[in-house]
């Protein structure tokens, strides 16, 4: 029930925030832990300040779509479970969960981050499909960026299951060393507009003070693979330019944390 909107807008106009962060600072700590679920083929838990998001990857064998018979596929699902915030109710995903899932999905799919051709086992008959489930454990704001990090970490950590030679089905008890054919690593950064000022990594209170926001998914080379504008107010072309600059810079920062996490693993 707390909502310090007026003060948030006032502070932003002075370049300040409630918790003394700069407008373009992420909360601390930022942590990426992997293998948080043994039953998933890949999983990760991402912490940004008080926000905690889990992502789990399950692999299944399916018939490829008829328009791409030699390719596997991906599906991203998000559930805003009531465990993570008093704001959420049990039941099927609402629009907020659907948006979170679709934005994360586009960031990965449209950048061609996964080599879907390599996931094909038998043309037109059988291919690996990647299903990523995203759930917050504690929603303290900025689920978009946390979900992007968690999804990528879980994909990077995924190892395929063996296929039972007799039945042709997935052997979920077995393990292999085969990783997913990841071609690119896309990450999303969300920038919000408070009054006339731009801000990253909002808390829930700050999010509700945003007049508009833009999520920008980019890969290592700076190529943009997905955009999503949210909020009720418009933004100018100049603002979009500024936001993309911020997003590229912050993606670099998040990427260094991701690299550090996987360097320690190896």
């Amino acid at each position: 029930m707390i909502n310090n909107t007026k003060t948030i807008i006032q502070l932003a106009s002075e370049g300040k925030r409630l918790d003394n962060r700069g407008l373009l600072d992420y909360r601390q700590p930022i942590k990426i832990e992997t293998s948080i679920s043994k039953s998933a083929e890949g999983s990760a838990k991402v912490t940004i300040g008080d926000t905690v998001v889990l992502a789990g990857v399950k692999m299944s064998l399916e018939k490829p779509y008829s328009d791409s018979p030699n390719e596997g596929g991906i599906m991203v699902n998000a559930e805003l479970i009531p465990l993570s915030s008093s704001e959420y109710e049990p039941g099927p995903p609402g629009i907020k969960a659907v948006e979170l899932a679709r934005v994360t999905d586009r960031g990965i799919r449209e950048s061609h981050a996964i080599d879907f051709k390599k996931l094909c086992i038998e043309k037109g008959e059988k291919a690996w499909f990647v299903i990523i489930d995203i759930v917050p454990l504690n929603d303290a704001g900025n689920l978009f960026d946390a979900a992007g990090l968690a999804a990528l970490a879980a994909l990077k950590e995924t190892r395929l299951r063996p296929i039972d030679e007799k039945t042709g089905a997935v052997d979920y008890k077995g393990t292999t060393d085969t990783p997913l054919p990841l071609l690119k690593e896309t990450l999303s950064v969300t920038v919000g507009k408070v009054g006339n000022h731009l801000m990253v990594d909002p808390t829930v209170e700050e999010e509700s003070s945003f007049s508009a926001r833009l999520t920008v998914a980019t890969d290592k080379t700076g190529t943009i693979s997905a955009l999503q504008k949210g909020g009720d107010e418009p933004m100018t072309i100049e603002e979009v330019g500024q936001i993309v600059d911020i997003a590229l810079d912050k993606a670099k920062f998040l990427r260094s944390i991701m690299d550090e996490c996987f360097k320690n693993k190896k």
Binding site: S37, K58, D133
Partner: peptide, 19 residues
Amino acid sequence: CHYNMLPFSGSGERIRPGN
């Protein structure tokens, strides 16, 4: 009470979400 297994928490295939 609300008991729920996350979709990736089962020992076999993904569990479809929903009540």
